[in-house]
Design a binder for these strands. Sequence first.
DNA 1: ATCGTGCTTTACGTTGACGTAAAGGTCAAC
DNA 2: GTTGACCTTTACGTCAACGTAAAGCACGAT
Lengths: 127, 127
Amino acid sequence: MTSGPTWTIAQIAEEFGVTHRTVRHYEDLGLISPERQGTRRIYHRRDRTRLGLILRGKRLGFPLEEIRTIVDLFDAPRGRRAQLEYVLGQIDERRADLEQRLRDAQDALRELDQFERRCRDDLEKLG
Amino acid sequence: MTSGPTWTIAQIAEEFGVTHRTVRHYEDLGLISPERQGTRRIYHRRDRTRLGLILRGKRLGFPLEEIRTIVDLFDAPRGRRAQLEYVLGQIDERRADLEQRLRDAQDALRELDQFERRCRDDLEKLG
DNA sequence: ATCGTGCTTTACGTTGACGTAAAGGTCAAC
DNA sequence: GTTGACCTTTACGTCAACGTAAAGCACGAT
């Protein structure tokens, strides 16, 4: 059925720079649902995509529960009109959050640049 | 000495949308050091500035300990050359972090827009 | 067949970031 | 002079996000 390359838990953990414990923790919270061959976990490309989304969400400071609602949104069935309208509403909320983060990062970078110039000025005055 | 408007802990907590417990917690970690009149805390403009920096750092997902090193950086004495060069090095590290957050937010927003277009397409197909 | 490697579950421990009483000081107002 | 509003410290509780054993299965290699 779902073919293509696969990975073990150790491989994707290594590749994404996290521990296997972290990956399983995300599974406990329902953020990833890898295939099983017997008892072993088998990860496909879509699992890697989701893990990438999760870690980016974490870097942006979102809690895992909120991240789950977001990644679930992308995989939601969205067949009926009501479902689509709900999803579009959620998108707007998330965008507002993300735009705030974007402004925060831009503001912080501007202040950092400004501060660096002051420091370089001070340094120059010292000869 | 340091004149100008002042605030109580309840006032700045209210204004910044956090609890007084949160503000005192930041003080415990050395992130803010309000003046004292007797036992009461008196907050000045610089405390408000720092609190603003702290909360923005939090929104961006930085841990409080790291935030402390950053805000301390801005108030550091930076008189000697060695100190200035250390500060400039720290600035570069922080900038790399912030630029990553900026890219994360931009990428996420792009994907969100793309996803929204797909949803609107689906909605249109439904009549 | 047993040894090592890599995986598994179960479960208690830890750290960060506060929440939440409990018990009390101060001061203006009634 | 006592009530009430607002502040204080001290200290235990909580929740998220994992860390860290402990104990055991599976399987290829020696």
